[in-house]
Structure formats: structure tokens, C-alpha cells
């Protein structure tokens, strides 16, 4: 293995959490479309351990969701293609597995929660049936036992009057309740890892808080790994242990959550943090990152962020920055911190 050559590329697992549950190494994904090749992911590395929450933060087109789909094995191929990379789940590379082996992992060991619960649930089947299906198919339970289990699950995700509502259909539930049902489905087989793709984006603020709390609590209870994919810097701050910031299909910065907010080491992260208005103070003019996110068919040469970056120099337009290990001024390594910026020192230390 080449882990020694690029130490910063593989984020260190947080102390005391043991070996990583999931490890993504140098993942590339491209889409072959009529208009050419879209380079959605260009070398992503991250890992999650049991009981740990990794937030993957990015704007639309950053590749955060595509990475999740590649991990789940639900990428449409074609047009999608994984030309390079490894995805280790408990030490086995899932990309080298047979379809049958992957299917066994999916659902029972790896589960996913989607943004839009209404379209992820089948509208013509009752929620009880859909929940029970997990037990009937994977565990061979009888219809009656499966139903009992479904009610238990609905209780666990705090759906009031679960017994009475088990035969209701998805449209009879509110958005927040539907997202709870999605969570219950993901939890059904007690997976080791849950990937939540924008789980609260479609929900109202007060409901958002409920759902995030529920997720965090269940994660502790089951000691699961959680990958939280989001564009919302606020949501991340509440629940994540560590953050990976993605831009144009690469991770540009990773850091433990508190440190990222306190001292961003990449100009993109810093720009994002500066550009959101604050609830607790009224600023003058908002800082705005200039320009637009890049077109994935024509990613700028060098650092993908260079046309929008205030610090860009000539080197940024020619050399793709690797993920540097971030250190203190005196050279002491900051554990779990990396920045893919040629000028990370200037960014973090001013």
C-alpha cells in the first residue's frame, strides 16, 4: 500500500475510534455524456470509523452525492464509470466484489437516507409493509413478526401512535414523519454505516432540528458510522466530528469540526464561512466568493478553485495542489487536518 507516501491523503482516524469502517481511496468517477466526459470525482480520500460522524460538505456539482452513490453501489453505470479507486468496507474493497456480495452488504451493513423521503418511499404500499419488507427479505420473518418489528422501529424513531399508523400510506405523513420513516428503514437491519444525503434539506427549521437530534442519538445508541452529506454549514456544525470539504470532485480541506470553523486552511472554506449571514449579528455587506462553480467538463487547470480565489498565484494555475498535512506555525502536526492549497500556511496563519 502507498499510505506512507501520501500520509495526509488518508485522514487519520480520530483517536480511540479504532480501525476505519469505511475507507475511500483515490476514487475517480466520470460520466460519459453526449457532450463529452464529465469528471465528477477526481481522487477522493476519506474514512469513517464506528461511532464517528463525517460531514461531507460541498455545493451542487462538488461530487459529494456522487461519492455516496459510488459507495452504495447505486451509481448508474453507464453513463457513470469508476476508472480508478478503492472503497474498503471493513478491509474489503467493494469495487472488486461480485454484485451478489455487494448486494448483501447493501441494506444490512450499509444504509442510505435520501433527501426526498416522498419519492424514496413507494406511494402505493403502506409504510408498515415497506418497513416489514426489510425483515421479510433479509431475515425471513413472517408477515406478522415483520409487522411487529415495524411498529417497534416506528416507535424508536418516535413516530407517535405507531401502532395506529403502521398501515398508513406515505402521503398521509408529514415531511418530518416521512423522513423518520426513511431513518427507520435505514436502521431496520442495524447497519454499521449510514449515509445520509441532505437528510434535512427539504424540511422546515424546527423539524430539521428534531431529525438531526434523532439521527445523532440513534448513532450513539447503535455506535454506527455516519456520513452526512450536506451543503449547509450550520447543520454540520451541530453534529459532525470531522468535515471534508469538497470542490469540483476533490476534497480541498478536511478537519475536525471545531477547528475548521475556527481556522479554515483553504480559501474556499474560508470564503464559504464568510459568505453566510449570521443570525446573531447584522453585518455590513456579505463577503461573496466571486465567479461560479466550475464546469465539470472543463475543470480549470491547476487548482480548480483558482479563478475564484483571491490568493491565486501562477503556481495555482498550473499545479494541482495535493492535500497537505496542516501544521501549527512551529511545525507541530494538527491531527486530522489537511488542505489542498498551495498557500495553506498563508490561509491558516494569516
Amino acid at each position: 500500500m502507498t499510505t506512507n507516501e501520501t500520509p495526509a491523503n488518508v485522514p487519520e482516524p480520530a483517536a480511540g475510534k479504532g480501525a476505519p469502517l469505511l475507507e475511500v481511496r483515490d476514487l475517480h468517477v466520470e460520466f460519459h455524456t453526449r457532450d463529452g466526459v464529465v469528471n465528477a470525482i477526481n481522487g477522493v480520500n476519506y474514512s469513517v470509523s464506528a461511532g464517528e460522524t463525517l460531514a461531507v460538505l460541498g455545493e451542487s456539482g462538488s461530487g459529494k452525492s456522487v461519492t455516496a452513490q459510488a459507495i452504495m453501489g447505486i451509481l448508474d453505470m453507464p453513463p457513470g464509470k469508476i476508472p480508478k479507486g478503492e472503497i474498503f468496507f471493513r478491509g474489503d474493497d467493494m469495487l472488486r466484489m461480485s454484485d451478489e456480495e455487494r448486494r448483501k452488504i447493501r441494506g444490512s451493513k450499509l444504509a442510505m437516507i435520501f433527501q426526498d423521503a416522498l419519492s424514496a418511499l413507494n406511494p402505493v404500499l403502506s409504510v408498515g409493509y415497506q418497513l416489514g419488507e426489510m425483515f421479510r427479505v433479509h431475515q425471513g420473518l413472517s408477515r406478522k413478526d415483520a409487522k411487529a418489528k415495524s411498529i417497534e422501529l416506528m416507535d424508536r424513531v418516535r413516530i407517535p401512535a405507531a401502532k395506529a399508523r403502521v398501515n398508513d400510506y406515505p402521503h398521509q405523513f408529514s415531511g418530518g414523519m416521512r423522513q423518520r420513516i426513511m431513518i427507520a428503514m435505514a436502521l431496520a437491519l442495524e447497519p454499521d454505516l449510514i449515509i445520509a444525503d441532505e437528510p434535512t434539506t427539504a424540511l422546515d427549521v424546527t423539524v430539521q432540528a428534531q431529525i438531526m437530534d434523532l439521527l445523532a442519538e440513534l448513532q450513539r445508541e447503535y455506535n454506527m458510522g455516519l456520513i452526512l452529506i450536506t451543503h449547509d454549514l450550520g447543520v454540520v456544525a451541530d453534529v459532525a466530528d470531522k468535515i471534508a470539504v469538497m470542490y469540483a470532485g476533490r476534497i480541498v480541506e478536511n478537519a475536525p469540526v471545531h477547528e475548521l470553523y475556527k481556522r479554515p486552511a483553504h480559501p474556499y472554506t474560508r470564503g464559504l464561512l464568510d459568505s453566510i449571514p449570521r443570525l446573531d449579528q447584522k453585518g455590513q455587506e456579505l463577503y461573496a466568493i466571486k465567479g461560479l462553480p466550475p464546469n465539470l467538463q472543463h475543470i480549470p487547470a491547476g487548482c480548480a478553485f483558482n479563478p475564484r480565489c483571491t490568493m491565486a498565484q501562477d503556481v495555482c494555475r498550473t499545479d494541482v495542489p495535493v492535500l497537505h498535512q496542516v501544521t501549527e506555525r512551529d511545525g507541530a502536526e494538527l491531527p486530522g487536518r489537511g488542505s489542498a492549497c498551495h498557500f495553506w500556511k498563508e490561509t491558516i496563519h494569516g
Partner: peptide, 21 residues
């Protein structure tokens, strides 16, 4: 001008941000 320039520069590298052709 700042805003326009940045748009222009963007479109310099890729003629149309959302549709490259």
C-alpha cells in the same frame, strides 16, 4: 464591473458555464 468581469473571465475559460458547447 467586478461582477461582469468575473463572468466574462469565467466564460473565457469555458464559453458557457452551464453548457460548454
Amino acid at each position: 464591473y467586478a461582477a461582469k468581469e468575473e463572468v466574462a473571465r469565467q466564460s473565457g475559460t469555458a464559453p458557457q458555464p452551464s453548457e460548454p458547447k
